[in-house]
Write a protein that binds this DNA or RNA. Sequence first.
DNA 1: TTATCATAGTGTATTAAGTACACAATTGTA
DNA 2: TACAATTGTGTACTTAATACACTATGATAA
Lengths: 253, 253
Amino acid sequence: MLSKQQLIEYSDDARKNYVNHISIDCVVFGFHEGQMKVLLLKTHNEEKWYLPGGFVLKEEPIDTAANRILQQRTGLDKVFLQQFRVFGDPDRSKVHNDMYADMIPKEQNWFSGRFISIGYYALVDFSGAIPHPDQFSELCAWRDLDDIPELQLDHQKIYQSALDTLRLQLNYQPIGYNLMPKEFTMPELQKLYETILGKKLDRRNFQRRILGFGILTRSEEPRKGGAHKAPYLYSFDLENYQHALTEGFKGGW
Amino acid sequence: MLSKQQLIEYSDDARKNYVNHISIDCVVFGFHEGQMKVLLLKTHNEEKWYLPGGFVLKEEPIDTAANRILQQRTGLDKVFLQQFRVFGDPDRSKVHNDMYADMIPKEQNWFSGRFISIGYYALVDFSGAIPHPDQFSELCAWRDLDDIPELQLDHQKIYQSALDTLRLQLNYQPIGYNLMPKEFTMPELQKLYETILGKKLDRRNFQRRILGFGILTRSEEPRKGGAHKAPYLYSFDLENYQHALTEGFKGGW
DNA sequence: TTATCATAGTGTATTAAGTACACAATTGTA
DNA sequence: TACAATTGTGTACTTAATACACTATGATAA
């Protein structure tokens, strides 16, 4: 056991030696016109884009912090938001540090430290989400999955990890409630899966499988007015959807 | 865009307002005599047990930190170790703060801050792991999954979350290489799965499924000497095992 | 007006995976 | 030498996954 004096020294050492910068970065997915999109920010004095991010307040739960940060930086509110991984390589924030180096005296520069970042991914209904940039950013824009520009820091890695997580979760969790409008057609939902997975699926097998999950309700009336045969409209059965979210689909063992 | 002066103020505010304490906590699973076990620590002046944990050094990758912390606190080295979740409720470290409150003057007490903890889980071969407590702890002991004592802080929650993660991963990843000795029998491996899942499995179906994964090699000679019919010995085919680890088992879509 | 095209809805045969269950072989012990 | 405990193996049944083809509707162009 340590003495009181040893403990005090230990505390002082800790302050000096341990990482003390935590950030949150959000990968925001939206779905529009058959394409999965990611929300990115940009300032005018930087070429590269970056993910909306920020810091956790001292008395704030991290999930609350993630929601607040997303709201402040993009204007998005009340979205599905979930942590998926921590990014903590020492060199991950080097560029970030340089960025502010000429702006703030070094001894005053809180940003010159080494950051550990908690990655969150968000799923939002594109049509209801009108993002707007905050005071730090000039641009706030949706970019197609297959047209992601070069990103700052390790944001490319964070984005890729979020996408991998999403793909894995397709296998044992329902998805779509937070990405689709209230009512949608089966081909539209299939497009969502295809754009996430990056490959084509068979219409008939997709429908059988999705319906087998029991999380969809079919409307009486099909969608009219469009060209071609009128498709049926579906909506999510929220009760079953929530149940599937917590329980997962195929138990495995 | 912000002015230089605004940026400096922003930096000062950040230092004051944002969380700046990060810890790592490890849930170490071991398997011995048909029972899954967790490694716990205890000091003599505290009743509750706790998970081995520590802090990340300023120039250290978090995975390296987790390995170092585990080594320092339990003597375990070169084990399978993986982050699974961040725990960041503001009240999660209250007890921790109180613990040191009478030992270190408040203004000097680095530990009185609010901590965000990265949860890691480890899988270790029990027979090769002889854990020993560090300078802070008095006891370092394996406890059966069904006999976990009361834990400090939110360590009960962290432990439960690690176990849930492990159970989920059974469905799409191989497991066992880090928990079993080099050679083992099929019933022994089945016991591992049963103790993780907390339920009985059918011998014949278990064997068919596990063998179907193609990650096991059967030895020529069965184990002799024991009572009853001599069981075959198996070992993991490392190449296929690694491949399954990265690729996963059943793709789903 | 009607043929055509694009899209939507539905069904069936085949294969693979999961589940339930029974009997034979080996080894130490009563 | 019969028995109990444990291990090895096989088979029928059910469910899920895959591959693939036809019919129906509505707008548009000949």
